[in-house]
Write a protein that binds this DNA or RNA. Structure first.
Lengths: 199, 199
DNA sequence: CCACAACTGGACCGAACCGTCCAATAGGAG
DNA sequence: CTCCTATTGGACGGTTCGGTCCAGTTGTGG
C-alpha cells in the first residue's frame, strides 16, 4: 500500500520523486521507462517508491499529472489573455515555433496515447488536461464573441474542440513524418476556419 | 540475421506470422505485446521468428506495415471514388460511425505514436500510410476542383493535410475522453471549412 | 531414393523487470 | 536523552523478457 507522507521531509521526498520521474517520462514516455531507470534519476531507493506509491501505475499517474500541470501552466500563460483573432494567430505562431524547438510530438498528446489504454488513472489526468486546454480556447472565443469580433452563431465550445483537434492531429502528423509542415498547415487551416466566423 | 523464405511453405509461414501478429498488435499496440504472446497467437516457435526476422523490431515493422495496408485497403475502398462534397460528407459520416464501433483510437494513429520514437522502420511505414491516406483526400479534392465544385484557389494538398489532422486529432481526443463527441465536432468543423471553398 | 537446404521445435541463457522484505537511520515529541 | 514512528537503503525472489543455439523434421531437386 501507498502512504501519504506525514512529515515535511517525507513530502519533500515524494515531491522530488514525482518531479524527476515527470521529467524522464516527458522525455521517453510512460511505457518506455522502467522503475530502475527512474530510481537512478530520482536518486531514490525502491522502498521509498513503494512507500509513497502503490506501484508503478500510481507513480506514473502522479508523474503524468505533474507533467500535465507543468505544460498547462505554460499554455495558460500563453492563451489565458487572448482576446482577439490576431492575438490568437500570434500566440499560435509562437506555439508552433516552440514545437519546432522540440518536435517530439505534443507533450500532452504523446502521454495521452501512451496511457489511454493502459492506465486508467493517468488517462483521466490527461483527459483533464485536454479539457483545461480546450477551456482556454473556449474562453478566448467567448471573449471574442462578447467583444463582437465573432458572430453570435459561432460556438466557442465547438471552435475550441476543433482547434484543439487540429493542433493534436497536426502534431501527430508532424511527429510521425519528422516534418513540421503538417502542423503548420493544420494550424493555418484551423485559423482560417475560425476567421470565417468573424463579424 | 533474417532470411527471406525461398519455398512456398516458407513464404506461407512468414505471411501467417505477420498476419497474426498484425492482429494482436492492432488490438493491444506494438509496445504492449511480447514475443512470447505473439508466438502463442501465431502458433509459431521462436526459431521460426528469428529465422524470418532479424528481431522484435523487424517483426513489428512487418506487422505494422501489414496492418497499415489492411486499413488503407478499407480507406481506399471508401474514399477512392469520392468526387463531390456531399459524397465526402456521407463517407466521413460512415467513417465516424465505424469509429464508434471500436472507439479505441485511430488504427493508424495509435500505431504512429506507439512506434514514432522507438522503431524507425515502423515509423516510416506509418508515415507512408499517412501519406497514402492523405493522397486519397488530395485526389478527391482535385477531382472536385476539376469539376468546378471547389474554387481554383482551393489547395487540395493543404485541404488534405488539414482534414487528416482534424480526423487524427479528433480520434485522439475521443479516445482519451472516451467520448465520440470530440471526433464528431472535429469532422463537422473540417467539413464546414472545406465547404468555404465551394464555388 | 538420396542428399541437401529449408524449415521447425523448444530448451536454454543472461538481463531486466516489478514487487517484497527487513534491518538501519533519522528526527521530532515528550 | 529516550522512544517511537516515519523514512530510507538495498538485497532478494519470482517472473518475463528478447535472443541464441542446435538437434530434429520436412520437402524438393536431381
Amino acid at each position: 500500500m501507498s502512504t501519504e507522507p506525514t512529515t515535511a521531509r517525507g513530502r519533500a521526498s515524494r515531491e522530488r520523486i514525482v518531479a524527476r520521474v515527470a521529467d524522464v517520462v516527458a522525455q521517453h514516455g510512460v511505457r518506455a521507462v522502467s522503475l530502475e531507470q527512474v530510481l537512478a534519476v530520482a536518486g531514490a531507493s525502491k522502498s521509498q517508491l513503494y512507500h509513497y506509491f502503490g506501484g508503478r501505475d500510481q507513480l506514473m499517474e502522479a508523474a503524468v499529472g505533474y507533467r500535465c500541470d507543468q505544460v498547462l501552466g505554460g499554455l495558460t500563460e500563453a492563451f489565458a489573455t487572448v482576446a482577439t483573432l490576431d492575438e490568437l494567430e500570434r500566440t499560435l505562431a509562437g506555439f508552433v515555433a516552440q514545437y519546432e524547438q522540440s518536435p517530439a510530438g505534443c507533450p500532452i498528446g504523446t502521454l495521452a496515447s501512451d496511457v489511454a489504454e493502459h492506465n486508467e488513472g493517468a488517462r483521466a489526468r490527461v483527459a483533464g488536461a485536454f479539457a483545461a486546454w480546450e477551456q482556454l480556447f473556449v474562453d478566448a472565443f467567448a471573449r471574442m464573441r462578447a467583444a463582437g469580433e465573432l458572430r453570435a452563431d459561432a460556438s466557442p465550445a465547438d471552435l475550441g474542440t476543433a482547434l484543439l483537434a487540429s493542433l493534436e492531429g497536426g502534431m501527430l502528423l508532424s511527429q510521425t513524418r519528422r516534418d513540421v509542415a503538417s502542423l503548420r498547415v493544420a494550424v493555418r487551416a484551423a485559423l482560417a476556419f475560425i476567421r470565417t466566423f468573424a463579424s
